[in-house]
Write a protein that binds this DNA or RNA. Structure first.
Lengths: 222, 222
DNA sequence: CCCCTCCTGTACCGGCGGTACAGTTTTCAG
DNA sequence: CTGAAAACTGTACCGCCGGTACAGGAGGGG
């Protein structure tokens, strides 16, 4: 039946917004059913308990998150064949997407769950862990492609560099939310972009005669 | 009286550990008094309500946090006069301190409060905001000193770069906790160190004849 | 000795998560 | 159109928790 799915989605929508603002412990089921316009029995028809709500919420969030990254980086990939340029472009697109959010980033459920670990069962913690590992794999894959072509200026561990992307995003969200400066997150992503650019793009020798900024679309493979 | 302060501190200790594991909403006063060995009345003698507990908790956490950064970076400052080298050394010391934590970083209360905004009054949100701004000021000050001597290889905004330190720390904590990899946080700090090093340290021309890694303790002032 | 700090004990309130279960409406397949 | 399953509503109840109120007690310092 489709009506059920629709109600379920509405509950999840309301719950997600509430949880990102007040945490799981701060979000009451009563308030969710009030805003959704459903009864308590109706709520428990869809979710056995709060833990199952959290599970559904987190899974949906992660899926959506993955979808967004897929879109952004595949779009970037279409625009340029070079792995470094497409990664840099992806970060640019990501920062634009983030700065286009009208009220800033609402918060990351992965971080919320992280700061709530003891309230949930192992399954949900494992889901969360896998989400972060998926980020590591995703960015790690792209970075390995880059490193196959561009030797990094400094020796770096690929996984650690991949984690840096996640770190800056998660940290940027915290900063942005706390400071109430929606743009901080986007700026942090661009700062990360500068880092990646500096790490892989060969040193541009100051041109002696001809001006203009040299744009290296390709460089010597190693 | 000193006995009162002692009990208060004990409550705060227990509360801090609990809040970092379960969030504010997930931490019950009853569990705090059980673990502290105090009665409910005793608890409410020290704190009017949960909000005031949160306020005391956050203030104490921030003070301690500031103290740690003061120590680390003043120690680094004593060891070298160069602003860049002392900053890089500070990050090194910080990463060592973080990797020495036996069970990994327990979590940042600033982030916890950030993901709980709506549950607290404006005062506590303002306190949180100011804590992040203090970080920005602290790291910004050091970075400005660096930039007065070392021209950055890429144009960067000082405040954004200062925020990068906070971002990586906050994000690293989330990753470390979620992955249950205590060392990830320390690695992220070192990765940030690489970024700063690369940004400010002049390009090392590959030595044609003599080997060994050239370590630039000083460079030309701009 | 008294007062102030630092609690304990008891009783109570309302909100919330959760359970149980009976009954009703909606939806869709046959 | 029908019937059964899906998608709810309504009601009653439990125990935990945050919070309030207030009386009283131990213990130390002036």
């Amino acid at each position: 039946m489709r009506k059920g799915e629709e109600t379920r989605t509405r509950i999840l929508d309301v719950a997600e917004a509430a949880v990102l603002q007040k945490g799981f412990g701060g979000t009451s089921i009563e308030e969710l059913i009030a805003e959704t316009g459903i009864t308590k029995s109706g709520f428990f028809y869809h979710f056995r308990d709060k833990n199952e709500l959290a599970k559904a919420l987190l899974n949906r969030y992660i899926e959506n998150d993955e979808r967004i990254y897929d879109e952004i980086f595949s779009r970037a990939r279409e625009l340029t064949g070079d792995p470094l340029q497409s990664f840099l472009l992806g970060l640019k697109l990501l920062s634009e997407l983030l700065s286009d959010l009208p009220n800033g980033h609402p918060g990351c459920l992965v971080a919320t769950v992280c700061y709530y670990e003891r309230l949930f069962d192992r399954e949900i913690q494992e889901t969360n862990r896998n989400a972060v590992l998926a980020w590591r794999r995703r960015f790690g894959l792209m970075l390995r492609e880059i490193m196959a072509v561009y030797p990094p200026r400094e020796p770096v561990d690929v996984d650690q560099l991949a984690d840096m992307v996640s770190s800056v995003l998660e940290g940027g969200i915290v900063l942005s939310k706390t400071l109430k400066e929606p743009n901080t997150l986007a700026e942090q992503v661009l700062m990360l972009r500068t880092f990646v650019k500096m790490l892989f793009l060969p040193v541009v020798e100051m041109p002696r005669v001809s001006g203009g900024s040299a744009f290296h679309g390709s460089a010597e493979p190693h």
